[in-house]
Design a protein around this nucleic acid. Structure first.
Lengths: 216, 216, 216, 216
DNA sequence: TATGAATGAGTTTTCATTCAT
DNA sequence: CATGAATGAAAACTCATTCAT
């Protein structure tokens, strides 16, 4: 959980009622951001949507950026928690093959992306001009890339992946491929391909690029 | 070449002098955009930089968006013209191998990206909120993805690439990989890796994902 | 009462204080309009005059036009309320004669015009270019012309006015005479005649045009 | 012909070609004014319409007001020349009766108004804010009111009109009636009555107000 | 004369943030 | 805590008029 750094004048609510108001504002903010984007969202839109007085917004957040960071933080939580599919102990050996795990991870990420597509668009928007937010995003990316790199190294040690690949660079590049493909498709609306065709292609390219044996 | 559509009051210069002023404004706009981003650029910044009167801006462009489209159009021109590396007739057979061509194309794109990194950042920014611009970008992307898809098909017919890959989807995914990797690195400044390490990884993943024979 | 339609961002005040500020703005607007005309009035003039911050204007009105409509609406209220002189029950029969009533109505209208001369000038100005306002004015005129037409019909049935006159057209024409005469004199400042001389003439022409018996 | 007072830098054209350009500009100005009103007309509209370079406008007129005054001057010429219907020597005695002359004058004015309705609207607009123009208009009005007053006096001496009417005031009031009625109808578009019905009413009211014998 | 570019003061409107109640 | 009014610094854009060629 990234520290959103509550500043002067704003404080974490103490009373039950305060907590409720704050949550209402966060929920409203997310909905409004999704509808209008960060730039076109006015604080008044958020308060109106949350059915809260204009001034109350500043009781809980020092600025528009501040709510956004909170909303984004929760979003990242959702996006990354679902990613690392825990090894299912009950699953057959085939399910545990690297190719199968990549497939499962990709599908999970796709599901999460689909669920959050609107906010992902806003996230991209804010990332283009807000440094603080860029940093937050970089950290999240580093974590998940690190995780993938670790897996690749493991597979290299197991002789499943070619030794000449740089695990870190590879993890980055493949993550960029999946991430950006989904972005262009789900957010920018590049002529929608058949879902399965795109996901299959991503799985296959991933697996072949790494030189892994295909899923049986 | 996108038609920016000169409207009421704005016009294409009819004299030498007018053309010069217009060019000065475009050049200045690009520089200012690069320095401050689209959102933080004021028309006054541009005119000051171009050393023309405030009002002169509106003699040639109806809005900040309009100059931006013109600047971006030229940028895309540069980014895509360099991409399709013409087959060098004098080159050895090895240079003409698919792997070699991919490598050359990637390098060329990298060079162009490096040259235009600052503007690519702004392009990404504007793409997050300006529909007209999104459309322009989509078109450019479609053209270059189409080109790659054609090459893949050719290689499939020659038995160099597996038949089960969807050329269109594959071209998209690989383009997304290269594009976004460069973006994260050159624009977002994700801890800069050694240049060669990243480029090599991209080449290799590309080639292996397609199942092409490696460069000798 | 015309609905000025509060839009996005502009609202009807909810508190005592808000109402006061809004009224201050309306009063200031009227005074400034009177002094400088609509075209030469700046929103800043109004806020300065009302001693509120520039931005406060937009808390209550979406534009200069909007306050004007409100000011004009109140003006019309005043101009027409005074018109229909209530039949004085204590008055002698002579006072109730058509000629006497016309005379009284004209005088009342003159008083109102005098009281509002400055604003009537602005009203005329705005009527020359603002469609919304033209419509509002048309409605007001229709109401008062309708009232006069009704009276003329009554007099026709009573045999006091010639049957061959079209009540509607007649009411219009006579209203135009009185209205425009006052306008040219009080607003455009056509060489000021002796008040009584003009008013008497208007009364007389009115009465004779209708063929009514003169006031005794 | 009112002197429009050509100011500094502008001069009456000397060459044949110059005269043509100037006329083109005046004609274009009238058309554009009619279409968009004075306030919404830009100098560029006029030059474009006249197919003349922007700068050329200022070769012939010192300002937008200046062309307007010239256009208006010609308009007034047309409006007043048609008014004083010359006594037709061939006409029957009945045609020369005051009632007949009033009728003819009203019809002639109506024709002229109809022909120039669009410009009359603009004239009214400019009259609300331009002092110089107000003065010009006042003079024109004085001339035609004077003419009517003279006629009334003549009719009074001939015992056709009641002695108690002030000729000047009467002429003013009746002119205001006709003028404003036509304005409200032809310019402001108050629900268009049947032409004849309005004109007849105006004639009749005029004649009866003066106490003239009706047309046979 | 004719042409078209250059100028820049002037206005409206927006909206995040601060205050008073 | 809640409420809603108050604030005022921006910024974009217009367009009559002046200039340079």
């Amino acid at each position: 959980m990234t520290d959103t750094g509550a500043g002067e004048g704003t404080h974490t609510p103490l009373t039950e009622r305060g907590t409720r108001t704050r949550e209402r504002l966060i929920a409203a903010a997310r909905e409004v951001f999704e509808q209008r984007g960060f730039l076109d969202t006015r604080v008044s839109h958020i308060t109106r949507h949350a059915k809260v007085a204009y001034g109350s917004f500043y009781t809980y957040f020092p600025s528009k950026e501040a709510v956004f960071l909170e909303v984004a933080d929760r979003l990242f939580e959702d996006m990354t928690q679902s990613s690392p599919v825990p090894p299912d102990p009950e699953s057959s050996p085939a399910d545990a093959s690297p190719a199968a795990r990549i497939r499962r991870a990709n599908r999970a990420y796709y599901e999460a992306y689909l669920r959050n597509a609107k906010m992902m668009a806003i996230v991209e928007q804010v990332a283009t001009f807000n440094e603080e937010f860029q940093e937050m995003r970089r950290k999240h990316r580093a974590v998940s890339v690190g995780r993938s790199a670790k897996a690749i190294e493991r597979w290299q040690r197991a002789g499943l992946v070619a030794q000449d690949l740089d695990p870190e660079m590879t993890a980055r590049a493949l993550a960029a491929m999946v991430d950006h493909s989904l972005y262009l498709w789900l957010v920018q609306g590049d002529d929608p391909p058949a879902t399965e065709r795109l996901l299959d292609t991503l799985d296959t390219l991933n697996v072949r690029a790494l030189g892994l044996p295909p899923t049986p």
